[in-house]
Design a protein around this nucleic acid. Sequence first.
RNA 1: AGGGAUAUGGUGUAAUGGCAGCACAACAGAUUUUGGAUCUGUUUGUCCAGGUUCGAAUCCUGGUAUCCCUGCCA
Length: 790
Amino acid sequence: MAPNFITEIIERDLASGKYAGVVTRFPPEPNGYLHLGHTFASFLDFQTAVQYGGRYHLRLDDTNPEGESQEFAEGIMADLRWMGWDWGDGLFYASDNFERYYGYAEQLIRQGDAYVDSVSGDEMARLRGDAHTPGTPSEYRERGVDENLDLFRRMRAGDFADGAHVLRGRIDLGSANMKLRDPVLYRIKRAWHYRAGDAWCIYPMYDFQHPLQDAIEGVTHSMCSLEFVDNRAIYDWLMERLAFAPRPHQYEFGRRSLEYTIVSKRKLRQLVAGGHVTGWDDPRMPTLRAQQRLGVTPEAVRAFASQIGVSRTNRTVDIAVYENAVRDDLNHRAPRVMAVLDPVRVTLENLEEARTLQIPYWPHDVIEASSDGLVALPGGERVAPEQAVRDVPLTRELFIEREDFSADPPRGYKRLTPGGTVRLRGAGIIRADDFETDDSGNVTHVHATLLEDGARAGGVIHWASAAHAIPAEFRLYDRLFRVANPEGQNPDDIAPEFDPEQPGHAELSEDSGPLDTGFLRYLNPGSLRVTRGFVEGSVANDPPDTRYQFERQGYFWRDPVDSRGDAPVYGRIITLKDAWAQTQKAESGKPKGEGKKQKAETTPVAVSGAQPVLTPGQEAEVTRLTDLGASEGDARTVARDETLLTFLADAAPGDTFAQVASWTVNDLATLLRAGEVKVRAADLAPLAGLLAFGKVTSRVARDALARAAASGEAPAALIEREGLNSGLDEAELGRIVAEVLEKHPAEVEAYQSGKTALLGFFTGQIMRATKGKAEPGRVSGVLKAALDAD
RNA sequence: AGGGAUAUGGUGUAAUGGCAGCACAACAGAUUUUGGAUCUGUUUGUCCAGGUUCGAAUCCUGGUAUCCCUGCCA
């Protein structure tokens, strides 16, 4: 986990002793399967705890019986364990604590912090008001404690129908934060809970239950996504009213979505239910179980999760980052073998007798990168590179890839052509002497000659012996959607031409309603291509979960569901990068271009220089302040802000006023509004005087101002006490400059070889070394002289 | 419209007043018995307008854009 704003908070909390250790939790609701979107959140929760030597919990957040099940709970656990997580005894079910939540609810009632409301849902929504109008109390808001307690107990006892009453927090109906307008804490809902059965007919709401559960578990840092920012106010209110100490705190991070992927549970369900995929584990799905079946390893998923950063903005990650993580993992894991996916027969006319070749499993670069000098056999055993080979028969009858022979090759084609040569991987060079085609012109047979050593060829192709290779089905997966953002509008999208051979297309057109099925129209009709071909015989004895690189094709493994011993099915985990396809596409690509979006186009020109309109009273203040010497801009800012106005009221009039006003606006405004400024404006005049007379640099003055604001000490006294007005003579400055240069020889060299931007770096170092006492004007002169002299 | 959050290359993320860096992508070259991998290099960026400062991605003011909130879901 790279450093981020949450690790920063944790380090501060640990350093200050706020918590003895870190405790986090990942709280999925067991009403669906985990998908790639969850890996980010779970990784953040778990890995952060690991990183700080803390604990992480898995919490099944099962407070809404609808849709939740043990099957989902177990699926979630299995997927997380597959990812390599071990929460030890840190497994919690929210439903195990229903009784405790209930107790806290009664406590809130007794404290007058919660009440039973008895209006309908519609009425409650109406009374809540909207963004412009504050909420109005329902007629039940002022019920007494005893009545509330009685009603709430009877709610639990099942005396009332669903929806007849709710328990609400009594917070603030007028709050601009809608979440605070007396949120519902409990509702009556007669539903069978997969763990609690029918023990309860009231269930707690997220806003009530989640903070309590965090506190009960002893969680310290409770991470959730950005849409819960407003809910934090309830979280803090609850912690305060129920006096938890030490208490957990909620921090929000931005979600990460992935290009070409949807993660909405409802839409995923539509894909399964509509038969657009074969199930939740269809290798094209973004669910973890699907990625698992695809053959992606947990290490790759974790690498991906660690590579996408953490921030407070919702972002969409480039699919290439995921693909890179998958390839990078497989490159060092998957032995190389050969398979022909779309075969064309080749006869080596001059090969009389079959040969057995020993071809290495690994390319030279993977061998060289091995840390112990050994490499793995498909079974996992690590052996010397020369032993990491398999037997491959070279026979008179072979198969090669249909794409690897061309009677009419495009420019730059490096494979087999009539009369041309190519190297058969590991077997030597052949020349195509002749070829046959069928009625439609498809090549059916190539007649070739195996050439002597010393022959030359421009390219290398893979192959398989017709007599020994194993027939197999290949499933070539591609992105499920044709567009990066299937849930968006995609006005530039061009629907693919109708192709009756592609399953899914017909359903797609009859199924596409105007509403939520819109994303279905972006389904990629070619997301699954099935071919029949041959894989070299050596794979027969390998473990069934071996991931291979089929050379020049991509990474594959045996489909764990559909593959049979006598009918193997190989699924493509991911393609190899294909520079040739790139150039091909570029050649044929119309100059239409992608139309890079220009920022200037998307951002309308801002109306600049617009000044907010001031009231006559504020205008009068502006005049008064400018008369006192303040700049127009500062005056306008101050006049509009009561806090700044009040602060500035006791500033001394005179020459120093303008400076004090400027500091007020530019340096103190934010602190002032937060009520964190301890110094008085009256104490600022002497500081401004020191600055005006050149006794201190502006840097020293601002530092002193900041410290004074925090401590309340008069800044001028502070400067006096620390001798910051002592000035800096030429000799001392020269000495410090020399010291700084000596400490940073690499930077000096870089500067002298032309990187003049480093002047700012040196200036900063010198300012720091002199505590700001050096005058920047002099520094630059001395510095340049010293650097040039060196 | 009220409240809240956010804004750095194509994408994601660093820089906490002092060198705009890293990863992925793209492009070029080297290398290569995988058009893979590897290595080297290159292109592209601080939302806009003002202000403070010797110096601003960072501080101040104003604006713009995007997202979230008005479930008895989580």
